[in-house]
């Protein structure tokens, strides 16, 4: 059985206790998007400000477990200043780490091209969430804020 330290890395607990970019942004110009984990009731609210195709500001509200809240905090730090395309790539890299990556480690057929693309992306603090894949029930906690951000970008683009 994987141990707790695989899941609750120190940096995760730090983001949970001291969440970055916590709060709200005035709507408009920002866009407000809610994400729910229907299984457990975790709730993430993303306030997103996009200017000229770039994330100029982001704030996170809502409530949830250490994994969902720390993931949201790390995400907010990681995406600020990135272009929409860069956010999309980072999101893909993060989600790959949350799912596909595990099977490729076990020697399943890895798409080498996608693999090398992934390796070029700097996940930084987000790497700390790698252990979540050992606790499959919690993967949805970790990806909740990312799915909500994707939705927020879509909504913002649809409105503009």
């Amino acid at each position: 059985m994987p141990g707790l330290e695989d899941l609750y890395r120190e940096i995760i607990l730090d983001h949970y206790r001291n969440p970055r970019n916590r709060g709200e942004l005035p709507v408009p110009p920002a866009h407000r998007t809610e994400g729910f984990n229907p299984l457990c009731g975790d709730e993430v609210v993303v306030f997103l400000e996009l200017t000229d195709g770039k994330v100029t500001d982001v704030r996170i509200a809502g409530q949830g477990c250490s994994i969902s809240q720390s993931s949201a905090s790390m995400m907010s730090s990681a995406v600020k200043g990135l272009s929409i395309e860069e956010v999309a790539r980072l999101t893909r890299a993060f989600k790959d780490m949350m799912s596909i990556h595990e099977s490729s480690l076990e020697g399943a057929d890895a798409d080498s091209e996608a693999e090398s693309e992934l390796e070029e992306i700097e996940l930084g603090d987000l790497e700390a969430l790698r252990g979540v894949v050992k606790f499959p029930v919690r993967i949805k906690c970790a990806t909740l804020s990312w799915n909500t951000l994707s939705q927020a970008i879509e909504d913002t683009l649809a409105d503009s």
């Binding site: 059985m1 141990g3 707790l4 975790d42 949830g64 477990c65 250490s66 919690r138 906690c141």
Partner: peptide
């Protein structure tokens, strides 16, 4: 100080 999900996770251990 601890979210119910995290309680449940540690309890499972």
């Amino acid at each position: 100080e601890v979210h119910p999900h995290d309680i449940s996770q540690v309890l499972d251990q």
